[in-house]
Design a protein around this nucleic acid. Structure first.
Lengths: 255, 255
DNA sequence: CTACTTAGTGTGTTTTTTACACTTTAAAAT
DNA sequence: ATTTTAAAGTGTAAAAAACACACTAAGTAG
């Protein structure tokens, strides 16, 4: 796991033209899982008419003196203003024919780039609470879209998104990354919601609670929610030390 | 999962100088898990004296018109002569300071390369039966070494090996990659041995058999081992169609 | 004080995990 | 022929986990 650092400030400003990072930024709001997408509008240079208008993930070339993790953190920072966000490298994409659709080639040409120059891109995903983000990005239009409504994206970004989502789900099943989405003190219903929304399943409340009750690093407080218009829930904290210490490496092969 | 193809023959021969692949080739022989390493000897150009002699993983730059998976397959082919081998991309390494040890820098200079030129390398691991491989490689010395005896490697290759091993173990626990190590017809003891050796654990025979008995894609034959100096074991085959069909996506989070 | 909303709780059943030791079958050795 | 050697194969009881399922409790809003 990489944490965003202030690499944005320290990296030299010479781009490596062969390698980029792409960030799949997942946003969670207890209702659905969304992904942050950037509008791509191509207008005819003569008439000004819109030739196409679609969506991309966000990415950028790495700087020559910049670590991959740092580049991903920078891309995330540029788009969201957020630092120290959970970021995970999941796969590198490097097919020589990554860019083959005519729209994509035209767009690259219009931006002074050679569509035949293959770029290797290292895929990262991050996971954050949607409402931590104020969308505003250098005049370009940025939007959240529920992951299951994304039907097409520019370049090979749909494939990248699908791989990212699969990696995120795998990770969520085996490591406590969901806590990044919660306030320090949270309720079990909130925790359950994370699993339900991200995995796209529904879970039985009683069985869920029985399961997490076994986890020593989930510490109940003598404290309750306040100001809710129903029975207030008990609050819990995640004890990372306890987790690291007792993390039994689970041997349970399902072949 | 990528399968080695004959990309070695079709790729154009212009190297991309910024991107390489490194292959961690794991060899299994029912006794231990080994890794294939290449001798690196640096001699003083004047005196001919050996300046150092250590070990590396094997890797190479990608060709400009070559897919990453194909490049990894090519590297594997060049070293082992094997094609269509299980190969898995697991992580990309790109720290600007990947090459910092003086031996490594000297070695690159001696080979006409700039040690300050950062190379992004995409890590792949493969898993094969040791005795499928005939070691011989263009005069360079290639050797198997048990993974737990590898204490240091050139460049950042020890880190790459460690990450590969962790990825291999994770994968083995969740997908049927072990069957690549078995003949078409195999015994349950052989299968068990794969898990024991690669995961570094020992498993109870009865419990293991109970567990795999539930797996429909493990098909018992009316056929036994021949010519063994003890009770011959029943033979089994792995039914991939059955596996693909019944592969229930397991929801069992251990947070 | 009633309605509404979410929190919180228990039981019985089935499945899975775990720990554990002796008999069987073949070839090899005598 | 008989014995030795080596790995195959098998069952049971106990504990833990998974699963299905429905009502009561505690707050705020009106």
């Amino acid at each position: 796991m990489a944490k965003a650092s202030n690499g944005a400030l320290s990296a030299s400003k010479v781009y490596n033209n062969y390698v980029s990072v792409d960030c799949v930024i997942f946003g969670f709001d207890f209702t659905r899982l969304q992904v942050l997408l950037v509008d791509r509008v191509m207008t005819d240079p003569e008439s000004g008419a819109v030739r196409f208008n679609d969506l991309t993930l966000t990415g950028n070339h790495i700087y020559e003196d910049e670590d991959l993790d740092a580049a991903a953190a920078r891309v995330l920072f540029d788009l969201t203003g957020l630092q120290d966000i959970y970021l995970e490298q999941f796969k590198t994409f490097g097919s020589p024919h990554r860019i083959s659709k005519e729209n994509d080639r035209a767009w690259l040409r219009a931006n002074g780039r050679n569509p035949d120059q293959r770029i290797i891109t290292v895929g990262y995903y991050s996971l954050l609470a949607t409402d931590n983000v104020t969308l505003e990005w250098k005049g370009r239009n940025v939007q959240w879209m529920p992951v299951d409504e994304v039907k097409s994206l520019a370049f090979d970004h749909l494939e990248i998104l699908e791989e990212a989502l699969a990696a995120l789900r795998r990770k969520l099943l085996h490591e406590p990354i969901g806590f990044a989405l919660l306030p320090e003190k949270f309720t079990l219903s909130q925790l359950q919601r994370i699993y339900e929304v991200i995995l796209g399943v529904s879970l039985d409340k009683r069985n869920f609670r029985k399961k997490v009750a076994r986890m020593k690093y989930l510490v109940p407080l003598d404290e309750k929610q306040k100001g809710v218009a129903h029975k207030p829930a008990r609050l819990y904290v995640f004890d990372r030390d306890q987790y690291e210490a007792n993390r039994k490496d689970i041997l349970d092969f399902a072949i």
